[in-house]
Structure formats: C-alpha cells, structure tokens
Design a protein around this nucleic acid. Sequence first.
DNA 1: TGAATGAAAAAATGTTTGATTTTTTCATTT
DNA 2: AAATGAAAAAATCAAACATTTTTTCATTCA
Lengths: 198, 198
Amino acid sequence: MLVKLDKQAGVRAPLRSTGSIGTDIRALRRSRNWTLNDLAARLDRSVGWLSQVERGQSEPALADIRTVAALFDLPVSFFFSQSPDTPEAAYVVRSESRRAMSDEGKGLVESLLSPDLGGAFEIVHSVFAAGARCPQPFVRLTEEAGYVIEGSLTLIIDGENFVLKRGDSFRFAGETVSWVNEGEVPAVLIWVIAPPVY
Amino acid sequence: MLVKLDKQAGVRAPLRSTGSIGTDIRALRRSRNWTLNDLAARLDRSVGWLSQVERGQSEPALADIRTVAALFDLPVSFFFSQSPDTPEAAYVVRSESRRAMSDEGKGLVESLLSPDLGGAFEIVHSVFAAGARCPQPFVRLTEEAGYVIEGSLTLIIDGENFVLKRGDSFRFAGETVSWVNEGEVPAVLIWVIAPPVY
DNA sequence: TGAATGAAAAAATGTTTGATTTTTTCATTT
DNA sequence: AAATGAAAAAATCAAACATTTTTTCATTCA
C-alpha cells in the first residue's frame, strides 16, 4: 500500500520505483525539467514512444540508452547496475551494491546511496582522489550539504577556502563552488543535493 | 549578496541566517507549518511581539525560550550553542562545534550538521547508543535517508527488519519506522530529512 | 527603557477558472 | 515487438480575486 503524502509537505510523488530503466529515464528527465517532447527530440524519437519506454511498456534500443547516458553524463553501466532483487531493495542500498554515477579516472567517484533516482533530494557517496581538483567552479540552483567521512577536502565557496576534515560538514545554496583534495589520501564524503540534478 | 533562487527549482527561500535565536524560532515554527498566531497562542503572547522576536527586534524572556524548547522537544542549550563568530560559520560546521538537538540519556544523540535550521532538508549526525531502542514506531510526512558511518543499526520499516552495517544506506517516505541498536558499540549515522521537522 | 500590545498596512498565500501544455492511450505502420 | 501519429486524458499554468499571514508602528505597561 502506498501512503498518500500531501503536496504541501513538499514530498515529491513518485518514490516507489519498479527499478526499471524507464523509471530511471523518467527521473533523469524530470531532474532537468525536460518534457517528454524535449527528451524525445534529443533522441529523435516520438513522444508516444518515450512515454511507453518510461513506463516500461516498450524497450529502448541500446543506441537510445547510450544517448540518454551521454545526455545525462552517466556511464551506460548505470542503467544496468540493478539492485539485487530482494525485498529490501526498495529501502536499502548495501555498501557493496551502490550504483556508480561517474567513471573512475576523473578523480571523483560518485555512487548513489538511495534505492533509486527521484525523490526530494539526492544522497551520494563521493570519493575524491588524492590530488584531484574540480575541473571548473560550478553554480547550481540547488541546496547542497555534505559531511566528511574520511580524509580532507578543500571547498572553495564564493572564493573563500575551507579545509574540511573528518567530521566537518557544510551547506551552501546558489554560491559558486569548487573543490580540491590537497591531502595524500582519498577524501570520502556524503553529499546531499536538493532538488536532484541527476 | 544574496542569490535569488527560483521557486520552481524547489529551493526554499530563507537560508542565510543571522544565527540569532529569533531565526531559530522562525525555522522551527515553519518546520511545523505553524503561523505566528499558532505559536504566539501557545506562548500566550501577541502575534506582533512574536514577529519582532523572530526578526531580532525584541528579546524573548527566558521563560519564552524554555517554552519554545519544550514545544519543539529541544534542549534549551540548543538556542545558546552559537557557532563561533567566524566567516566560515555561514557554510561550515566543524565537528567540535555541532549543535546538539537532543539530550544525552535517551540513547540517541542528534546534532545538526548544517550551519542553521531551515533550508529544504535537514542533515543530522546521530549516535545511537549500544542497546538503544526507538521508544515507539513513528510515521512522518517526510522523505528520509541515511548512511551508516560506524557500528550497526536495525531499521524496522513497515514491519520488516533491516540490519544495516557500516557503509549501508537507506531511504523511506511515509512508512512506519522504528529502530534498535542491537550491537555492542554505538551506531553512528548521517540522517537526512526533507522537509525539516525540527 | 525596552517589553508587549492591538490595529492598520503590506505581503504572502490560497483559490478559482479557463487556457495551454504535457502525458497517456491506442489503432496503425514498419 | 518497435515505433508512429493523433485523439483523449491529465497535469500544469496564468490571471484575478479572496483570504491569511506577517510587518509596522503608535501606544501602553512594568
């Protein structure tokens, strides 16, 4: 039974997922505020088809999945890293079965800590390699907060440097942000973003 | 300068705080969807006065603060655990200067990981004492997620038991939830709640 | 002297309605 | 079975108006 949460409380509707590719695509599309038409155009497919795909009534071709992955800057593997088919999968993500959201090699490995995309916020496990540096500062229309589990990370918020160590936390919203790991070991953080950007 | 974030993106307005008691009270009141009138009535004070207090134009009496603390089930100390007056305080919370949101002794110590109350979600550091047990299951109109940093915690979601270990994470929304720490050591978690309940 | 009030003004929020956009459905084609 | 295109259904949006909530401020209270 699905509990009806009232809108006013700010809880987004579609949380319970089927864990299908279509559900992922829908969440990704929504995170960018795109309509079916917006995404269908980019895939060079019809709106009706996309609607069917998102609801699991039709299977996208591999080529389509590749395009979607590219559009959202995700590894294709993301769409196939299915959570094990246990009853707990709706609620729990085991440390060994997180879905990777970025490829190794960029100095930052992000993986999803929630059972699926969607919801009011995104909670991500991020590992910043020693010496890694944000390619360029970014600004997002989001509220973001984080907590340092291991190692140390320098955050640059609106030009000010903050060296965060284990146990430190932060929050910002709307500022220009960048980061560097100036330590000798990887920095491990929990990072929360609302609303979701992936 | 305060960046204007657009509503559509779902970012709540009043983030930057003055760090005053009034700001805390306003955030707490809002988290329960109470109007000035609702809270003023409970404090047996006028609406105008409360408006002034929340905006720092008037000082509440100690008795008022005690009542507020009781209403929101917070220790009075919460309102006086000011973050150090450094420029970073707007963005960063150091591990040694978190604001405690619950008194020791209940088996659960929660402390705030964001620089102030308010915002789209709440991020909390929670330590569940070994053997501690949730006094009774709860249901909230929120979306909640968490990550186990240390130790182990059993979550009971809609009657199903999930034993979470270090590195595991979870998310739920609308379910009936309870918890026990059946381990021998404290369980340390990061817990995210949207929208804020404190 | 600053806390506190009450009432008027201002601001914010909610509601309705009709129009528009977005999504779903489905018969048909590839 | 994938994919389309068009009709139906559902959801979203904008404007106008009503209502609620918040702020302001002159005044009283202790």
